[in-house]
Design a protein around this nucleic acid. Structure first.
Lengths: 232, 232
DNA sequence: TTTCATTCGAGAGCAGTGCTCTCGCTCGGT
DNA sequence: ACCGAGCGAGAGCACTGCTCTCGAATGAAA
């Protein structure tokens, strides 16, 4: 770590600036990021960018990782700002944080949760950061289950082929979450990003003017499904 | 209507063929449809396409409308194939039909429910066809509510700003659906397309091998939330 | 301090894209 | 039999991602 040579430092700064300019372009021009336009904005010629990113996809990947981390951080911060015992408050805080982040950066959200870019396959570097948002939700479930404070409504049992899958997944997550609860948590996660996507991609704008209220109500519905305790 | 002149007929055939070729390209090459490639595939030069579609976006719009209609038809057919009184069976049939359609035509699904193309704004022609899938779901709710056969688990009431929005929406849908039930129906719709999107965009492939079972379980969870009666 | 090699940016160029415009030809409707 | 509407071809413009080469700057070692 010591002695980051001067060259390496200006190089890192250059990379950061490229990413910053690219993020700005993403926000204004939508998802079709033009390397040449970024270069132009920096007073460089397009080929110079290739000194820093081997291809446009690599630049996109860097932006995706940063976006996942930013979203994950926003979500985790929202969770951390709550009373650990107020499970329902944490749930809503996490959901709202994800939505606020998405509404503030629609293009970056689309990059993460929209249709995958045709030729593009997400490299392994992205899977870690991508797990931070769902892990925040799972953390709430785990705390609630550990304290035996969840009271989910009844439902059909988890039957066999799926039960084993969910058990494996629970094991990877550190064990002890029952399969049915994990399934409900994933339903909540799915619902959260379905809600955000529908809102962002213009599927409910015309019919539901009060979108905040709609969002809160629907996430509360999922909190009920999971069994998060009502008003402390 | 009478006497579709020969010119008009070959023109319509031409349009159909272009759409067919474009759909093929969409399926193989992903979302970035190349007009020139389509033209090449038809043994034409690119400018000739513009005799039939004013721009690439118009061709995409035509494909989107067709895709919405195809999905709507698949969903409605699945619903129609069920005993009208088997609400839960209808629910699962509709959900599975949507998923099957999406898995068979991932690129077209991404066109409909993925991130919106940057400069592209969906014209009004699309909103009618786009409503067919959710309307199929709403139809199940309506039948169940009309026969007083729904038994949803308890939840917080729908409070004011949202209540009015949902009442308006219920009015547009032909009235009589209570707000809380409509909200649950929309939650089911959101969950359905969240599930399909997560599956299609590769967000659960690694962790849940038995995806059919997962899908059925999660849609059953939403059926419970809506209050669709269990096993007749 | 001088040299040297690494690193960088510029520029030209290739193949591809959406789209426009013009020019002839063909063929359907009168 | 005619003739004009409609059509396809072709060239061209501005743009894209990407490659390659060349000269210049500059940090690091001697």
């Amino acid at each position: 770590m010591a002695a980051p040579s001067i060259r390496a430092r200006v190089r890192a700064e250059m990379i950061d600036e490229i990413k910053a300019v690219a993020r700005r372009h993403l926000a204004s021009d939508g998802a079709n990021l033009s390397l040449r336009a970024v270069a132009r904005d920096m007073g460089m010629v397009s080929s110079a960018i290739y000194r820093y990113f081997p291809s446009r996809d690599d630049l996109l990947t860097a932006l995706i990782i940063e976006a996942y981390d930013a979203l994950g951080e926003a979500v985790e911060a929202a969770d951390a700002g709550c009373d650990r015992l107020d499970l329902r408050g944490r749930w809503h805080a996490v959901c709202r944080a994800a939505r606020d982040w998405a509404l503030a950066r629609p293009a970056e959200y689309a990059l993460l949760y929209g249709s995958p870019v045709p030729g593009y396959a997400a490299p392994d570097d992205t899977i870690g950061p991508a797990q931070r948002p769902p892990l925040a939700l799972i953390g709430i479930l785990r705390d609630g289950f550990g304290d035996d404070r969840l009271d989910p409504p009844p439902a059909a049992e988890v039957t066999e082929p799926l039960r084993a899958d969910l058990a494996d997944l629970a094991g990877m997550l550190g064990g002890e979450l029952p399969e049915a609860l994990l399934a409900r948590g994933m339903a909540g996660w799915t619902q959260l990003f379905g809600l955000i996507s529908f809102e962002l991609f213009g599927r409910i704008n015309r019919i539901l003017p009060h979108r905040d209220a709609y969002f809160d109500h629907q996430t509360a519905l999922m909190a009920d499904l999971i069994g998060l305790p009502r008003a402390d």
